[in-house]
Each structure stands twice: as structure tokens, then as C-alpha cells.
Design a protein around this nucleic acid. Structure first.
Lengths: 360, 360
DNA sequence: CTGTTAGCGCCTTCAC
DNA sequence: GTGAAGGCGCTAACAG
């Protein structure tokens, strides 16, 4: 298929310029001419060359969405919302952006690589979803990259990631999740129910979200007069998947058989913990309460329904998409904090008076 | 950022051609010169313009991956594998393809739209993942589009979708899942355990995978002497998510209180069914057996562990990726059938002798 | 090994 | 309203 604009022009017996004008619809063209051109396009099955167009017009219709784990619905939901907001409305016709998701596997190297690739393509916008590795080296490398993109005219939006260091000021619009506040309220909920020995299954070490959620938890524990050493002792790290939650729950139980509650840093970890407890013959929430974070769709639907913190993922994604398209007013200071809402459900309850439960 | 190749050339005091040669590394350049050029690139923070390069070299480094639902791990796992196979090896250096996933929401219109957008970008390859809508009109529209892409030099790979009609012969390499065979073996497993009244929760109507899995199920039922009318009566349609499975299970129970087994067209539906049964006080598998399809990671991990059909999603995705890159020999006839493996686990067991169970 | 010369396919001032 | 000409930034033959 080597049919070019010139071929269409010849076929329609007009100049290339006219064809271009018809295709882009941003210039007056006589109705008859336009019809002739469009027919030629049909007949020749012409499809514009995006790269030539982008080069000539110095404009790109590529929008990149970076996610840490494409197999995790947390990212899928956000990415889907961004994508829908950007390219989703086929009815609206001309909106022809190619919104596209890239899976970094949470690997900072991959993150940089994809950003470079998108920069090569002169992407119109980049939306980076989810938390970041905490290495300072990396943070600056990524920040520099994002800054470069922004300088080149690419709109940069962070969604579910802390804002860039002040040095890079408003080069990126940010929708930060209030992980710390959400985690704090969740643990406060358990404390209010009367729990003291609360185990915590954190996310992978060295990640911003892991740290912030853990900080919120610790904050609540300390405010309630529980020692930091104890809190630390009842914290183990996992990898945000169910199997990891299963193992972590067993590890916590081994450390502290008198545990009355377990908090997972996300819903998958919490459900893994539930499974482990069930296999041990421990009932949720009668014997041990369990809580998660994120409120993915299945969480309200499992048995017992999971107490968790609801993050408005789809809404945040949609908003990120609009910001990326410049269709929404940037938040003041370029940073907006998205709150999580405590969803108290059936998996948490007051602890039993006596710890008389089987441990088999 | 308007730094161009020419700027680098000037800064390094060489010609543009030399810079290009250094950057592409496909031509001998003196070590000293190369070093000088690379330093200039660093200092100027130069990033090649992908569109100009693509235009000049008439080559693209974009690879599109189309999925039906980006929030469903089924697609996430495949897409991740494709992407990793294509752009994943940062160690290998030069492999600089931008593998990118597009979410069609299962909407045929969106599917066509994304294919067109990728065609505009002269994508190097397109991998279409998952089943298709069964409208003939659409099938031909999509087939024509794919054919056009292939004609333009884009490699087209279908993964988990039936082959194109013969008229479009080998314009697309195909990895088709053996949905029918897998479903048949699964239902045979239940029949062999002694079940007769088996409910089936199918996927959304009008989709290829839905029909094929249902066909396999019906085939097994018929071969076992069960009437088609009865099989049809015990079939309801859902939408591949857990909530839908929950509702469908209740609907089946209402139609046939003496049900002894339920098969979901995927794992999410099966787990939803489990939840519904549990809420009804019905034990799995003691009272009713439940089985799913796909074997997503969580399925082996729930309680009771789910009997299902394992599809090698990651392997298939990786293979699709290699085919898209031309790194693997195409299968004979351009079509390869990927078998599903029956995973008999704890959620299926022989039916009770007497149907003496509560129905409250 | 390096520089020079043409385009790649399209958009966009300019004239008419 | 339409056509003609130049250039977007880079690569790919050619020469040397």
C-alpha cells in the first residue's frame, strides 16, 4: 500500500493542498470538490501517513499511559478510564488521539525507556500512573525526563504518584492519592473497634505508596499509644498479590499468635490473608478482622465483604485524561490530593474477649 | 526543545550523516568521532525525532496490542507477555520497539478505530488479543482492515481469536485457543464424576469465545445422552465478571433447584457463582461442584481451589510477540491451536447421593 | 571513514 | 476557493 496524498489528488483531479485541506477540515473547500476528494479517498482506500503529518505539522496524536503492572486491575481501571477520556468518544468524530498503555513492570529502567520512546515520538501527553521507586537517583532521573518532555511541549500528568520535587515545579500536573490519610483512617477504624494487636502486610519495599500507607498505619498506632517497635514487629512486606498476602498472614501469625486483626496494603493482599486464615480454621471477622486498600470491584463482593479504603480510580483516571488533553483546569499549585474513603464492611468486627481459638 | 540532528552535528563538528550513523550504529564510524558525537548528544540532551526517522527510513517502531478489557487480568497477562517479548529486554540494547496496548472495551467500533490509528502510524506490527464480535458485517470490516495493514507491511497476529476467513488467507498469523475442546473436557470431567444437572454460565452473547466454549459444553452433554433442550434450559449468559456469575448462579438455582454442578465460562464467573452458593448456605463442592475456565493466578489459590481449564496465557502472549517481531517461525498454515489443560482441583467432586440440602 | 545530495509524505504560507 | 513551492528532521544512496 503505497497510496499517498498525491495519488488521491491525481485521482480527484485537484492539488495535494486541497486534499490536505479536506482531510483536516480546517479550511474552506467547495462542497463539490470536497465530495470528489472524499470519493477518491474511499476508492483508493487512502490512509494518511501519521508520521509525515506529524512531522510537517509538528504535532503528535500519541498519548502514553505508563502503568506498573498491566495485569493488576488497579492499573487497568485507571488506564481504561484515561484512555476512554482521551480517545473514547467515537461519536465526537475528529478526536483522533491514540491513547496507549505501556507496562513498566514497576521497573524504573523500563519506565525511563518508555518515557524516552514516547519522547522520540513527540507524544502529545504522558500520564504516569502509580507509585514510584524511592531511589533518589532514579527519582531525579525520572523527574529530569519528565521535565524534558514537558519542555518539549508534552503534557505530563502524574496519577497516584507523589508530586515531583519542587525544583521541577509545575512541569507535571499531579493527582496524588491520599494513601497516608486513608491508611490512618483504616487503622483507626480497627483501633476504635478495640483491636490492639494489628498485623500489617505492606507493599514491596522502596516504593512511595508502600511507605505512605505504612506511615498512615504507624501514625494511627502511635497515636493510640502503641509502641513503634511493636508496630514494626507486626509488619511484613509483600508484593501486592494474593499469594504474597497468604504467606504474609501465616508469617504474622507465627510472630504473634494472639493477633486480632490484619491490614493488607491492598485488597489482593487482604484476600490472600483471608484465604490463609480460612485454611488455618480461623474465622473472619469472628476470630481475626481483615482489611484491605483500594476497593477493587471484587472486594465488596467476596465473603465476607472486605473492609477497605475506596480510591476513586476510574474518576481519577478520567480526570487525569482530561488534564492530559488540556480539557480541565489544572488544580491550584498543579497538585490535587485525591482522598480515600473508608468502606467499613463485614470483614472487620470487634475482637473476641478471649483469644480461645484453634491454631491448627 | 528544538534541538535537532543538525545541532548535534554542528556541536560535534561533523556532518549530519555522521551523527545519524553513530546513532543508528549500523555503519562504521571512527571511535574518536563517535565519542565526540555521543558527547554532543549528551550535552545537548538530544532525542531523535521518531517521526522524522520513521518517515525517512519508512520504518516504524510502534507495535499495537489490542485487548477487549484492560481491567481483566486475562488480557493483562497476555498483553504483558507480548510487550515484554517485544520491548522487554533492556539489556539487549538496540531493541527499541514501542509496544503499546489499546483497550477496545470489546467494542467493534473502537477496534476498527484503533486499527486505523495504528495504520496511520504505519505500525510495525499489530497483535489482536481475545475474541471477536460475531456480526458478519464486522468480521469482514475487521478482516479487511487487517488485510490492509498486512498489505502495507504491518505484521498481523491474532491471539485467542479464531482465524480470519479463508479469503484473507495468511494475512494474519493466528494463535487460536482451543476453547471448544477445553470446555468439552471440563464438562466431561463433571459428567465422569456423576453429574447430570449441570448449569452453564456463558459469556456475553454474540462473541466467538462464548459460542465456542458453549459448543464444547453442549457437545459433551449431548454425547452423554443429555437432551439439548435441557442443556439450553440450564444455560444463562453473563458478562465475564464476578458479579454477573453471582446473579447467574442464583438464576440457575431458581430454574433448577436440584442442580449439582455449575460451570462458568471463565474463572471470574465461577468465583461469583461460588460466592452466591456460599451465601445460600450451599457448600462447594459437597452440595454443588463449580468449575471455571482460564486458570488465572488467583484460581488455584481460592478456597476451595477452582477446577478450571488452564490456558497458557503468558506463553501464548510471548509467542504472539515473537511472531509479531518475525522472530519465530510461523505455524504451518499460519494457524496454531493452543490447547487448554484441565486442572481438576477441589471445587469439583462427585454429587451427593440424595439432594438433601437446604435452599434458603 | 566522512561529507553531499536527494528525497520520505505531508502541511502551510504565499500567490492567484 | 484553489494551486505552487518550500520545509518539517532525518536517512540513504552516492561520491570522495
Amino acid at each position: 500500500m503505497a497510496v499517498r496524498l498525491a495519488d488521491v489528488a491525481a485521482h480527484a483531479e485537484v492539488s495535494a493542498a486541497t486534499v490536505s485541506r479536506v482531510l483536516n477540515g480546517n479550511y474552506p473547500v467547495a462542497a463539490r470538490t470536497r465530495a470528489r476528494v472524499l470519493r477518491a479517498v474511499e476508492e483508493l482506500e487512502y490512509v494518511v501517513n501519521g508520521q509525515a503529518r506529524a512531522l510537517a505539522a509538528s504535532s503528535s496524536d500519541l498519548v502514553g499511559i505508563l502503568v506498573n503492572d498491566i495485569a493488576d486491575p488497579f492499573f487497568g481501571i485507571i488506564a481504561g478510564a484515561v484512555q476512554q477520556e482521551i480517545g473514547g468518544d467515537p461519536a465526537s468524530g475528529a478526536m483522533e488521539k491514540l491513547a496507549v498503555v505501556c507496562n513498566t513492570s514497576g521497573d524504573p529502567q523500563q519506565e525511563l525507556r518508555y518515557l524516552t520512546l514516547l519522547q522520540r515520538q513527540r507524544a502529545a501527553a504522558v500520564v504516569v500512573v502509580g507509585d514510584a521507586a524511592e531511589s533518589a537517583q532514579h527519582a531525579t532521573a525520572v523527574a529530569a525526563k519528565l521535565n524534558g518532555l514537558a519542555a518539549a511541549g508534552t503534557r505530563v500528568v502524574l496519577c497516584g504518584r507523589p508530586p515531583l520535587p519542587a525544583a521541577y515545579a509545575p512541569s507535571a500536573l499531579t493527582l496524588a492519592f491520599d494513601n497516608r490519610g486513608g491508611a490512618r483512617r483504616l487503622t483507626e477504624h480497627l483501633l476504635a473497634l478495640g483491636h490492639h494487636r494489628i498485623g500489617y502486610i505492606a507493599g514491596p519495599a522502596g516504593r512511595t505508596t508502600t511507605r505512605h500507607r505504612l506511615a498512615g498505619h504507624s501514625e494511627a498506632m502511635s497515636a493510640h499509644g502503641l509502641s513503634e517497635a511493636q508496630t514494626r514487629r507486626l509488619t511484613v512486606h509483600g508484593t501486592y498479590d494474593r499469594a504474597s498476602g497468604y504467606d504474609a498472614a501465616l508469617a504474622l501469625l507465627a510472630r504473634e499468635p494472639a493477633l486480632t486483626a490484619v491490614v493488607g496494603a491492598n485488597d489482593a493482599l487482604a484476600l490472600g490473608a483471608c484465604a490463609a486464615l480460612r485454611d488455618r480454621g480461623i474465622q473472619v471477622p469472628v476470630d481475626i478482622s481483615v482489611a484491605g486498600f483500594d476497593d477493587l470491584p471484587f472486594s465488596s463482593d467476596v465473603t465476607p465483604s472486605l473492609t477497605t479504603v475506596r480510591l476513586p480510580l476510574a474518576e481519577a483516571g478520567a480526570r487525569a485524561g482530561r488534564l492530559a488533553m488540556g480539557r480541565e483546569q489544572p488544580p491550584p499549585g498543579a497538585v490535587s490530593r485525591v482522598r480515600g474513603e473508608l468502606m467499613a464492611r463485614a470483614s472487620t468486627a470487634p475482637p473476641r474477649r478471649k483469644p480461645g481459638r484453634k491454631t491448627g
